[in-house]
């Protein structure tokens, strides 16, 4: 589903990603972990070209986003993204947040978009908030709406950029539960996270990034409990 080859990203003199190669299968749930500044968010943001790689290639669903003249907007319609800071549209109701892009980008009919939105809100347990505005929602509710908004585009892949890092602790689980449900439904997911519990329980594979290098990857049980590299050992000692 996703192929990444020799991915480099530089910000000025700062090398954030130093040649990452990996591929992610359809239906796979991949957790990306690593210390802050390791480049894991940048890696994720390169997958839908929110950051343009300095060199290397990224392909999603067989389409190479990094080639010259690639239709990035079109490709993004297929790649849902969930942000740490939710980034809901504050001037739109929950319903409008969920229907805006399907109607205006995918050209889905309004009735169909509303139908989809209602189903998704039910799925994330927020049917009663359909007419609310983002400012009336708690952090956990906002993030669930943001997940529903991304799903409304019916993407093949979902990217999560530290989806629970901005939440109060008591709201983390409601969001993780939604993500778990999504994983069980067979969605291809790439999740940058600090939630080791989630990585262990839900991910099929864990990538450990440090200083822009993919240091280690493997099944959660292996990597989290029995890391091979010193760096991964040190990092996991601190967070587990």
């Amino acid at each position: 589903m996703i192929q990444v080859k020799d991915l480099y990203k530089q910000f000025g003199d700062l090398e954030v990603l130093k040649g990452i190669t990996t591929s992610i299968e359809k239906g796979e749930v991949v957790a990306v972990i690593g210390p802050s500044g390791s480049g894991k968010s940048t890696f994720l943001r390169c997958l839908n070209m929110l950051e343009v790689p300095t060199s290397g290639t990224v392909s999603v669903a067989g389409y190479e986003l990094t080639k010259k003249g690639a239709n990035v907007s079109k490709a993004r319609q297929n790649i849902g993204m969930v942000f740490q800071q939710f980034n809901l549209f504050p001037h739109m109701s929950v319903l409008d947040n969920l229907t805006y892009a399907p109607i205006n980008v995918l050209k889905v009919s309004k009735a169909e978009a509303i139908e989809r939105a209602k189903k998704l809100l039910e799925r994330v347990g927020l049917s009663e908030k359909i007419d609310a505005y983002p400012s009336q929602l708690s952090g956990g509710q906002k993030q669930r709406v943001a997940i529903a908004r991304a799903l409304a585009m019916e993407p093949n892949v979902m990217l999560f950029d530290e989806p629970t890092s901005a939440l109060d602790p008591e709201m983390v689980n409601e969001v993780l539960d939604v993500m778990k449900g999504l994983a069980e439904s067979g969605m291809t997911m790439v999740v940058v996270t600090h939630e080791m519990g989630f990585a262990r329980e839900v991910a099929d594979r864990v990538l450990f990034l440090d200083e822009g290098i993919l240091m280690e990857e493997g099944k959660p049980a292996d990597l989290l409990l029995n890391p091979q590299t010193d760096r991964a050992k040190r990092f996991l000692e601190k967070v587990l």
Partner: peptide, 26 residues
């Protein structure tokens, strides 16, 4: 907020619509 551009970018919203429906109202 920069996140508003990013969120609408990630949804594939084209530039003019992004400006008109997402950014300018805010």
């Amino acid at each position: 907020d920069k996140g508003q551009w990013e969120a609408s970018d990630a949804l594939g919203v084209p530039y003019v619509k992004q400006l008109r429906s997402i950014i300018l109202p805010q």
